[in-house]
Design a protein around this nucleic acid. Structure first.
Length: 228
DNA sequence: AAGATGTACAACCGCGTGATG
DNA sequence: ACATCACGCGGTTGTACATCT
């Protein structure tokens, strides 16, 4: 038996919010703040459950929400973070404060998945030659499955720094230049042959790497193989 | 023109978690 | 330690609108 519903379903209104309800909720919260969400519906005079009020406020009525089309840069950030964090939409949304987790989740499920599929289809011809980063970097590791891969974009450079750290503390690092899709470090020369960029990777790197934002990214090898 | 199908997104539901008594 | 409560999260559903046949 599951948890009982938060509200009495017989007396609570469901379905789309009307403009009148929106006005009531907004003016109540602007005047008194949400405080305890459980008391909001009764205090504001709304026949809605507290969850519904909170959701309506956080996903739609809250000030500072940006609606409408996602920019290409936002798309790339979402794709990038989804690869690193998985479907943790709230965590992803924290990097895009003007977007709600619900918005990002919907956008991912309805548009970005399709877009990625298209890009990956374009890479199919190259798939035979490709190796995953986990395979490349795990060369020489006695137990690569226990390691983590890190990717860093230094703010001053258009380079990705990949590093691998395992419990045994040995490390492989490489300076990566997205403009030519190659590793600069001599000690990583062999990776150049093993890790050609896909269309998807180039699309992601070109933008993210030129934004000037520092990003420190840790991921498990399992997640890594999904990204590459 | 009308019904079928697809798409976008708002909203709901159930569960996990932290706070509190 | 345990029960209860409130909140937040992610998965899923419902529905209005657009497009296709």
């Amino acid at each position: 038996m599951g948890r009982p519903p938060c509200c009495d379903k017989m007396t609570v209104k469901k379905g789309p919010w009307t403009p009148e309800e929106d006005i009531i909720l907004v003016s109540y919260i602007q005047e008194r703040g949400p405080g305890n969400w459980r008391t909001v519906p009764s205090n504001a005079g709304l026949l809605r459950c507290s969850k519904s009020c909170r959701l309506r406020w956080t996903n739609y009525l809250r000030p500072g929400i940006k609606r409408g089309n996602f920019t290409e840069h936002e798309e790339k950030i979402i794709i990038h973070l989804q690869n690193l964090l998985g479907n943790r939409w709230a965590a992803i949304a924290s990097y895009l404060p003007e977007r709600t987790d619900n918005d990002i989740k919907n956008y991912w499920n309805t548009q970005l998945k399709k877009k990625l599929n298209k890009l990956q289809q374009g890479d199919d011809a190259n798939n035979q030659e490709r190796h995953s980063v986990s395979e490349s970097i795990s060369k020489g590791h006695s137990n690569p499955s226990e390691g983590t891969l890190s990717a860093t974009t230094p703010p001053e450079g258009n380079h990705y720094l990949f590093s691998f750290n395992s419990d045994e503390s040995d490390e492989a690092a490489a300076n990566f230049t997205p403009e030519n899709g190659a590793f600069k470090d001599e000690k990583q020369q062999d990776l150049n042959n093993q890790m050609p960029l896909t269309l998807l990777e180039k699309w992601l790197f070109d933008d993210v790497a030129t934004q000037g934002d520092e990003e420190i990214v840790d991921m498990s090898l399992g997640e890594t193989s999904r990204l590459f």
